[in-house]
Amino acid sequence: MSNQLQNTSAFNSATWDFQDLGNSSPVRTPEMRPVAVNPWDIALCVTGTLISCENAIVIAILFYTPTLRAPMFVLIGSLAVADLLAGIGLILNFVFTYMLNTEFVTLISVGLLIAAFSASVLNILAITVDRYLSLYNALTYHTERTVTFTYVMVILIWLLCIALGSLPLLGWNCLRDESSCSICRPVTKNNAVALAVTFLLVFALMMQLYLQICKIAFRHAQQIAVQHHFMAISTTKGVSTLSIILCTFALCWMPFAMYSIVADSSYPIIYTYATVLPATCSSVINPIIYAFRNPDIQKSLWLACCGCVPSNISLRPRTSSDV
């Protein structure tokens, strides 16, 4: 196995286990002095810590607040669990890279990160579907059928993501053939391309759903508004919110998805770091967009922190954009 492949592979012992920017692996051995920690790995570890803290707060709020059991909160909780696992995976990857570097740990780490980030993306899609249904079937949305559908959707998402995360352990890896590695070792080039194309399809579906949401919102505004000017402003604000959500999602994940398709392990590692870091930042932004903006979660957070609720939050009406 050539030194060139060792130095240019994006990940060392896991999908996110990056090689040092120098000429050697950052793994400690009895015969070698410890190699300086890669600053990019530190940045990913710090990002993972921030992700874990944010989403742990969201999960705690949802768990200890009995009133937050509606379908939208089930989906927000599922997204928070996925992002929490992603954050823990980034932290463990840093620990494993510099303290414990074995083939088994490599496959466990890559499996956890694939499952977690896949679940994060698919839960965002599920939230988009829920928003669409809440407008399209407004009269029947708050029924037991919707609750059942939500739980089934969450279960299917996690079963699929666990299956994807198990693939490296089942032999779908490039540990025995470095030439087939993608920018994310030990994921093979073909598997990385398949995941990237799937992401692009998910993004395209999200765009279509949000376009339909905008159409329905404008139609409802025209049908039931008496104060046309007020409703126009409200609807425009909602469209702006959806645009921000889509743009943020695309800016975080699109560079990494596109780079995974065109690049392989022979490409400079600096480009992999530059595309991976924004992708992981998606899990930092998700709690802000989908949880902390929701007035019900804000109330619970204020009550937990200071025992009071600001009047502007308690009197604020809930809208679909708060989900």
Rank of each mutant, 00 (worst) to 15 (best):
N3K: 12
S9W: 02
S9V: 09
N12A: 14
T15H: 04
P30H: 09
P34D: 08
N38S: 07
N38K: 03
I42V: 09
C45V: 06
V46A: 08
V46I: 15
I51F: 04
S52R: 00
V58L: 02
L62Q: 03
T67R: 07
L68M: 12
R69P: 02
R69F: 05
D83K: 06
A86I: 09
I91C: 12
F94M: 00
T102M: 04
V105I: 10
I114S: 01
A126K: 02
V129W: 15
Y132R: 03
S134D: 02
Y136M: 05
T143V: 08
T150G: 01
V152E: 05
I155V: 15
I155F: 13
L167T: 10
C184Q: 06
V193G: 01
L201E: 06
L205H: 07
L205N: 06
M206I: 15
Q212H: 12
R219Y: 13
H220G: 01
I233D: 11
S234Y: 10
T236R: 04
G238Y: 10
G238T: 08
S240D: 09
T241P: 07
T248F: 15
D264Y: 05
Y273I: 01
L277G: 00
T280F: 11
V284M: 13
Y290K: 03
R293M: 13
C305G: 00
G307K: 01
I313A: 01
S321N: 03
